[in-house]
């Protein structure tokens, strides 16, 4: 099958010009065509949230969006979180609070939390729990993820 189409979008501030089939998911385009394997695939049917990235600031499940739908958009992935060697407060907090074990769900949780905290820096605890319950983690039992995001939220408000 070779009916590919050109797509241009920005990922972490950098322009990417790729040629994809219309059916190619954004997640596959990021992982295979852009080489950004930090975005993971845990189910490819929209439940687990490991593929979460920000598209124009909104958390999106990259397995449920076609690459062509991201045309002209600005995407942020886990690879863009740190500034050089300096980790983002969310990354620091996940590390400090043991918010990850295998780390497979971590990029999705980081981007989900980033989207939520950027949209609503003073998010209530109840709303935060609600947001974080949209992604799955099979290792941690979530409590340390919640602690980490709360700590990062404090840090981000203070900064």
């Amino acid at each position: 099958m070779n009916n590919t189409m050109p797509v241009r979008f920005k990922v972490n501030g950098k322009d990417y010009d790729i040629q994809v089939e219309p059916r190619r998911s954004l997640a596959d385009a990021l992982r295979e065509d852009c080489g950004l394997t930090g975005t993971h695939l845990g189910c490819e049917h929209g439940v687990c949230g490991t593929c979460t990235v920000l598209v124009d600031g909104q958390p999106v499940r990259a397995c449920l969006m076609f690459a062509v739908q991201a045309r002209g958009k600005s995407i942020r992935t886990v690879e863009g979180l740190a500034t050089g060697d300096k980790l983002h407060p969310l990354q620091e907090a996940f590390w400090a609070h043991h918010g990850l074990q295998c780390g497979f769900c971590t990029p999705g949780f980081l981007m989900l939390a980033l989207g939520a905290l950027e949209a609503e820096p003073d998010i209530s605890d109840e709303d935060l729990r609600h947001v974080l319950s949209s992604n799955l983690c099979r290792c941690t039992g979530y409590q340390n993820i919640l602690k980490a995001v709360r700590a990062a939220a404090r840090e981000m408000r203070g900064a």
Partner: peptide, 22 residues
């Protein structure tokens, strides 16, 4: 102590099975 394995995992530089290509 905080874990020595975490830095690549929080920065998206993990290398899981599906991240291998040639």
């Amino acid at each position: 102590l905080r874990r020595i394995e975490d830095r690549p995992l929080v920065t998206g530089r993990g290398r899981y099975a599906a991240d291998n290509n040639a």
